[in-house]
């Protein structure tokens, strides 16, 4: 096929994304280095020196890290169990894991407001059985954000892991056992390394997703800010577009660094080479 036809097919999409996504993003990044017409990195200096902003960055990082680790701990055994089922059961379990993933983040965060609130399920139970005298403050804390984010992203981890586990030959485990390895040792030295690519993909999705999530922290975090809600607050409430642009730039750069690093790691660790 002639080259110009090929570009004709690609051009509309490329033009659309360049005009409406790439240019706005690069202009936003560029704008952070100019304040009132002169080149400056003052905004970034201010960012790194402001304890309030550093605390927001810290909370975001901490919440995302815990979310990712818990998703791995809960997702790994679950995915292993699902991948070992017969096709029919596996299909049903996958559908049950996918359903919350496709359901609106607002619906899911809202459900945790009902559960974790002052008169929510958890507090009613704790007060009812006399474990605590006063309802605990769970909603509008980093803990609530973490629970909401784990609920939001666990299906992604499960699905990424089932994808790689399905392809692992069960005979490998039997072979290692027949050669004298314990079941646990065989599992840790054969199954787990083979799952690393799926584990990395799942972890990128969960970590970057938590790092940049808006809806769940907005609903469950209360006054606790994370970078995404901080960006929104600067842009829409405080009208400080300069700070909002800086936060946006930081988010893009961090996202791409993480994806790049994880990709490199995946390439190194991939047992297929």
């Amino acid at each position: 096929m002639k080259k110009q036809y090929l570009w004709l097919l690609l051009l509309p999409g490329l033009l659309f994304l360049t005009l409406f996504m790439i240019i706005p993003i690069f202009m936003t990044i560029g704008s952070t280095f100019f304040h009132e017409g002169t080149f400056t990195i003052e905004g970034y200096v201010k960012l790194l020196g402001d304890p309030y902003i550093l605390k927001i960055l810290g909370t975001t990082l901490q919440v995302s890290l815990v979310t990712t680790i818990v998703c791995i701990l809960l997702g790994f055994p679950t995915a292993y169990y699902i991948s070992k089922q017969k096709a029919r059961t596996k299909g049903i379990l996958l559908a049950l894991a996918l359903f919350p993933l496709l359901t609106s983040a607002i619906v899911r965060s809202f459900s945790w407001m009902v559960i974790l609130g002052k008169n929510g399920l958890v507090n009613n139970f704790l007060v009812g059985v006399g474990l605590v005298a006063e309802p605990l403050k769970i909603l509008y804390t980093p803990t609530a954000m973490m629970i909401g984010l784990i609920h939001l992203f666990l299906p992604l981890m499960i699905i990424s892991l089932v994808g790689v586990m399905e392809n692992i030959d069960e005979d490998l485990l039997k072979a290692s056992e027949s050669l004298g390895a314990s079941r646990m040792k065989g599992f840790m030295s054969i199954i787990v390394p083979l799952c690393v690519p799926g584990l990395i993909v799942g972890s990128i999705l969960v970590f970057v997703g938590s790092l940049t999530a808006y809806t769940t922290p907005q609903l469950l975090g209360g006054k606790q800010r994370v970078v995404a809600t901080f960006l929104y607050q600067n842009a829409m409430t405080l009208n400080d577009w300069y700070m909002a642009s800086i936060v946006a730039t930081v988010m893009i750069v961090v996202t791409f660094i993480i994806i790049g690093l994880m990709n490199q790691l995946a390439r190194k660790l991939n047992p297929k080479g």
Binding site: F20, I25, M27, L211
Partner: peptide, 19 residues
Amino acid sequence: FISPILIPGVVLGFTMLKY
């Protein structure tokens, strides 16, 4: 073509509003 999934949603929203 895949990048709109990779770029944080709020960044897309804000830069589009801005420009």
